[in-house]
């Protein structure tokens, strides 16, 4: 009975979510992934959700990734004229209790100057960097579509 309960869909979903989440005492990352792109692609985008469970403001600034020469926080925005533009974000402020989602068509982590391009099915470590917090590292699975 316990075996069956353990593998109920909800429990399985929680296990899968835990597999791609990371947490410091006060920060939690979940739903992390990178969009699969061609091997000659010069850039790729990362998505995740970050939650500040602590009691102080934290500023996300970027990321360190072994295979990328640079990483920036960007936001894809659509103006009233229907034009899509990419805005560079110097940082993303997380007040206590804040939850910020990086998702396709919105905020995203842009990885540049790729020395290699990981393939769909692989997982790579991405360390998010902050102005006032230790790095937070977690594995980002490479996928064709959002989880």
């Amino acid at each position: 009975m316990m075996f069956k309960a353990f593998f109920k869909p909800a429990a399985l979903a929680a296990l899968l979510a835990a597999a791609t989440s990371a947490a410091a005492a006060d920060l939690e990352i979940s739903g992390a992934w990178l969009r699969a792109v061609p091997p000659v692609s010069p850039t790729m985008a990362g998505y995740f959700e970050i939650r500040n469970r602590g009691d102080r403001v934290v500023k996300l600034e970027g990321a360190d990734v072994a295979f990328a020469g640079g990483a920036m926080l960007h936001d894809s925005r659509t103006g009233e004229d229907g034009q899509r533009r990419m805005v560079h974000l110097d940082s993303v402020r997380l007040d206590p209790g804040d939850r910020v989602r990086f998702a396709p068509g919105g905020k995203h982590l842009m990885l540049m100057k790729l020395s290699q391009v990981p393939r769909a099915g692989e997982s790579v470590e991405v360390c998010l960097t902050f102005a006032n917090h230790d790095d937070l590292c977690t594995d980002f699975p490479v996928r064709h579509n959002a989880p």
């Binding site: 969009r35 850039t43 790729m44 985008a45 396709p104 842009m110 990885l111 064709h144």
Partner: peptide
């Protein structure tokens, strides 16, 4: 354009 990391690869896909 192929240097676009977010929208363009998604549209191509």
């Amino acid at each position: 354009y192929t240097h676009c990391p977010d929208i363009c690869p998604a549209v191509l896909a």
